[in-house]
Design a protein around this nucleic acid. Sequence first.
DNA 1: ACAGGCCTGTAACCTAGGTTAAGCGCAATT
DNA 2: AATTGCGCTTAACCTAGGTTACAGGCCTGT
Lengths: 239, 239
Amino acid sequence: MITVHLKKLRRRTEISSEEERAIRATVAEVREVRADELVVRSGELLTSSIILLDGWLARSKDLPGGERQVTELHVAGDFPDLHGFTLKRLDDDITALSDCRLAVVPHERILDITMQFPRLGRVYWFSTNVDAAIQRELSLSLGQRSAISRMAHLFCELYVRLDVVGRTRDSGYQFPLTQRELSECLGLTVVHANRTLQELRRRNLVELENRHLIIRDMRGLEGVAEFDPSYLYLDKHQL
Amino acid sequence: MITVHLKKLRRRTEISSEEERAIRATVAEVREVRADELVVRSGELLTSSIILLDGWLARSKDLPGGERQVTELHVAGDFPDLHGFTLKRLDDDITALSDCRLAVVPHERILDITMQFPRLGRVYWFSTNVDAAIQRELSLSLGQRSAISRMAHLFCELYVRLDVVGRTRDSGYQFPLTQRELSECLGLTVVHANRTLQELRRRNLVELENRHLIIRDMRGLEGVAEFDPSYLYLDKHQL
DNA sequence: ACAGGCCTGTAACCTAGGTTAAGCGCAATT
DNA sequence: AATTGCGCTTAACCTAGGTTACAGGCCTGT
């Protein structure tokens, strides 16, 4: 049930069966939230974090004027507010983009597990560092890539990340975001996000219909994106 | 000599004198590098990380076409490639923006210290998480703020971060970046960075001359930036 | 003393992406 | 069956920021 999370961890490092048991035991309960629900409000004190089992979450920051920037998308297997374990409160909001199932992990259990298995402490530290790397790549996108390259890059990244946890099918995946939400990931207006998506369709690179994305031409899309997945740290790590 | 680093840590959490001794003992040597030197190349395997004692470093990512985005600026006290301890290689380059003094900390000593003092492991985990928060705020800037607001925000952030380590003077600080480097932080062209800087000067918010920045009107600058320092996690943390 | 490079500053012009507005389809509600 | 609302799409128009080019000042090396 938390298997998808272990799958993600094991892509990057060994997890012994003893460690696996300990990780499974950190889950206190499983919660469900509905699309558009605010799951964690920035600033509030946290005493637990969540592992995303199913569905999509977005982390985002807002400006006083209401402009929103999504700082990271999260898919099954992710630990979206693990940084809350050390930070105690988040600087970004977490919102459900679809109906979701969440495993709730109290912070004291994270503390316990990292004391008992210091290596798991490093594994989770590593995990927040990979999230930071994803966010750096986003800064590169927002600062330097064109709209079309940014969107292509996002689609490529999500393909790889979903593939790690076995949630792709036929060069495609469920993509529950509205175009408004997509535009908030890319630092674009909805109108221009739409134009950009049309252009990717016109070039026969992707299809997006009924919340399902199909990548028609992976090579072509990666080319437009100048996509290089090394920032995702997919190789095996000694931790 | 590594005191500036302890000063930064102590702003956010208690460090006992025993912990302090252990931290000091992690430094293997002190290196100097010259302005413009590439200090860490992305992708290369790391066996040590560095604490910045003096000077400024930039982390940046380049696109194949040569466009560069600075992902974070680092000042005295920072541990710019601490994420390399778990990631083993960086996804961003580290370049010296000025002459710098660096304390070299071998990874095995970080491993030792975190095994002996698990709390210090969490302190350093926290530290990389604050860096990630700084990078999220950058994404918000790049995605949603105007050029002038972005630049004002950067100047505010650096003021606060330098103030933590006692490197401000009279509402100002040494600012060694050229306008090109500044533009690479902000996702702007040099020409527009110059225009934007002129506008901040014209509004009597800042002066920048001879690599020295003076904030003429802190309130005004924070207003333009919509600056809220909570993402810097400056309060005391139990870790 | 001079040449060559960088850095700062400006000006003229251009374009990627923003703004505003409107229409269409479809699902949920009444 | 009509209504409301949301998401998608397109069009016309606008502007923040990009591009190109050039000039002056200051270092550094010869």
